[in-house]
């Protein structure tokens, strides 16, 4: 099992260098840290929530079919219930009418959980950004781990996003300040569900999560 070059090496078990581990591996002896094993296991059995919003969902389904075969990455078990899912793929336009339900689904998912914003709409509203009923990016209400641009992203792009997420999961630590979000006791797991207001959602975005980024601009 060779790691991608950009990958941060895990703290190895004992005082064994990576070269020595590689050597042992060739002799059929696997030495691993718990952290590595934990990340490896989690990253290869991601169960996505079976939940499609719009056009991008069709490409998500296409990614699950024979040609692209998301099963190669261990993520073919689409669960219809949020209680059984690890990954929410927000595939499509999130409308304001739908946003509270998306947040509710997210809150119902158990930790550890991850979110992929698939497609321009989920990232920013995409082509429908001008719409009065269109949420300008799901990251206004829930934290997003991976953004996949495209309209729609090709299934390959979704697979690439998924492998990026796997890398991210493998790099997560079990303890310490860099521990994974779900292992930090004070990190939020549930997010407030917006209400339907008379003109807009109340609040229109979650202020703890979303602040308009500062534009780097020349004077």
């Amino acid at each position: 099992m060779s790691e991608p070059a950009h990958h941060t090496p895990f703290p190895s078990a004992g005082n064994i260098s990576d070269a020595e581990r590689e050597d042992l591996r060739r002799h059929g002896i696997l030495i691993s840290s718990l952290e590595e094993l934990y990340g490896w296991g989690r990253s290869n059995s991601i169960w996505p929530l079976q939940f499609g919003l719009a056009c991008c969902a069709i490409e998500m389904i296409a990614a699950a079919t024979a040609r692209f075969d998301i099963a190669r990455f261990g993520a073919e078990i689409f669960r219809p219930s949020p209680r059984q899912a690890d990954l929410m793929i927000v595939s499509g336009t999130v409308t304001k009418k739908m946003a509270p339900q998306v947040v509710r689904l997210w809150n119902q998912m158990p930790e550890p959980k991850y979110c992929i914003a698939m497609g321009a709409c989920a990232i920013s509203g995409g082509p429908f950004k001008q719409g009065y009923n269109v949420l300008k990016g799901i990251d206004r209400f829930i934290p997003v781990d991976i953004y996949i641009p495209g309209c729609p992203p090709r299934p390959e792009a979704l697979l690439h996003g998924l492998t990026q997420l796997q890398d991210k999961i493998r790099a997560e630590r079990i303890s310490g300040p860099q521990a994974a979000r779900h292992l930090q006791p004070d990190a939020a797991s549930e997010f407030p569900v917006p209400d339907f207001g008379a003109h807009d959602l109340q609040p229109p975005s979650n202020p703890n999560l979303f602040t308009a980024p500062v534009l780097p601009r020349k004077a």
Partner: peptide, 22 residues
């Protein structure tokens, strides 16, 4: 639209909520 919504957005003089923060 949801039931609590009060405007009629397809009218020409409808003003959409200003939520293009960035």
């Amino acid at each position: 639209m949801w039931d609590e919504f009060q405007d009629h957005p397809m009218r020409r003089d409808y003003v959409a909520p200003d939520d293009f923060e960035w």
